[in-house]
Design a protein around this nucleic acid. Sequence first.
RNA 1: CGGGGCGUGGCGCAGCUCGGUAGCGCGCCUGCUUUGGGAGCAGGAGGUCCCCGGUUCGAAUCCGGGCGCCCCGACCA
Length: 488
Amino acid sequence: MAQDKALTPRSQDFSRWYNEVVHRAELADHSPVRGSMVIRPWGYGIWENMQRALDDMFKATGHENAYFPLLIPMSFIEREKAHVEGFKPELAVVTHAGGKELEEPLVIRPTSETVIYSMFAKWVQSYRDLPVLMNQWANVMRWEMRTRLFLRTSEFLWQEGHTAHATEAEAREETRRMLEVYRTFMEDWIAMPVVTGLKSEREKFAGAVETWTCEAMMQDGKALQAGTSHHLGQNFARQFDLTFQDEQGTEVHAWNTSWGVSTRLVGGLVMTHGDDKGIVVPPRLAPVQVVVVPIWRKDEQRTALVEKAHQLRSRLQDMGVRVKVDDRDHLSPGAKFWEWERKGVPFRMEVGPRDLESGQVVLVRRVVAEGEDRKAFLPEAEALAALPDLLSAFQSELLQEARRRREERSHRGFDGSIEEMGELLDAQGGGFVYTGWSGDPEVEARVQEKTGATLRCIPDPAFRSPEAPKRCMGGGEATCEVLWARAY
RNA sequence: CGGGGCGUGGCGCAGCUCGGUAGCGCGCCUGCUUUGGGAGCAGGAGGUCCCCGGUUCGAAUCCGGGCGCCCCGACCA
């Protein structure tokens, strides 16, 4: 479990820090199969909280959950041209089963558009059957060349929403609605600010007409695509005969959307808030929001203090706070402090003999705000009463701080050459660069080749610079503003 | 797929150059003492040295072949 006690500092080697912290916070571990991971209870607990929050938001926007199978006939994947081409290299295929070679190979789903729309085709006949608003929580598999825990693994957990609509306008509206749900979730729950916008042709989902994205900035200045929402047009509807009779009785193809976020978000959380002591879990997602650590010197004290700790726990539980008492007695208090800090628990409450006597507790925040004392000595009742507010204040400070960091490394109105952009990214250790663009894919390819940065998105109005850029990166006139960054 | 590194008790590593039958730190178990920032002492358990073959009286060490993993790049949520 413990190698060296301290983690490699982020400033020294960010990706090593990431790997260490994921292991040592007990989020996940490598499985025996290359590129796939075991999500441990602490990591899974965070994911469960994400699921719960997202699921509520999906339900609130009228969606229902369903489940579609893991295996998809190869011919289904092959039906939509762009879709096959996008996924072919990363497919895992089942060729044998029951001791025999299968007549038709089965693909382990890399995503479920094909099966889902083939089923929708059976269920939808009339415009009265629309819209269909469905979501599934599932695992998918994409055979990746290079993998990293949470950020890119061969198998990952996600949610994929799939909808069918009578009109293009409705589908577009749905695409945007769910992008907005994602943005809200990422900001309000993960405390991870994102820039939303449209993907370029080159970067969009294979099979989509348009892909919209949420782009977050990690602490090393690299971008993380945190969630996408696709307007699929009628591409899949055509291939799977997803048609319906409209009000005039005409048989027409439905319009589809799909949208997803994955366990990658856990990696995003780690790289957004972690520090050199470990990860920091935003209170709303923390499986444990407050850990109570009783401290004793003599055995006689132990009983009283452990009892007090459990008393505090049940008081907090009654207030809706997620609490854990750490009364293990083979570890020193210090060891427990380090462990829970590594795991990112927002608050620690210590109770020792001195506190017991004076009716106080010691409250310690995982991340100390500027000008604040590390430890607060508070009367018990006061500490309990204050916790809900402290938790929500902590939550919003995390978002503020992440936003501040992002702005610090965002370069708006950049008007230099492609080479200069590369230099800027080298010097700053990444970052977001906003420039003008003509929409020319050749320019996009050239920038990527020379700087290592990709076109993350054409930002939505809310994220655009006050002044629209006039010049395109790489010459000519700009038709839009774009965001560049090196990315995960 | 290119480049680099590594496979030795649960984890991290040393030993390999110069062959002689395996060691360190952490963790684990037992006991006692401890506990307000990673506890101390004593005792103890635990290893096909990645695999196959070769050289040799003898291989973790040398030679040949294989496999696996990690890191850095090109593709990707």
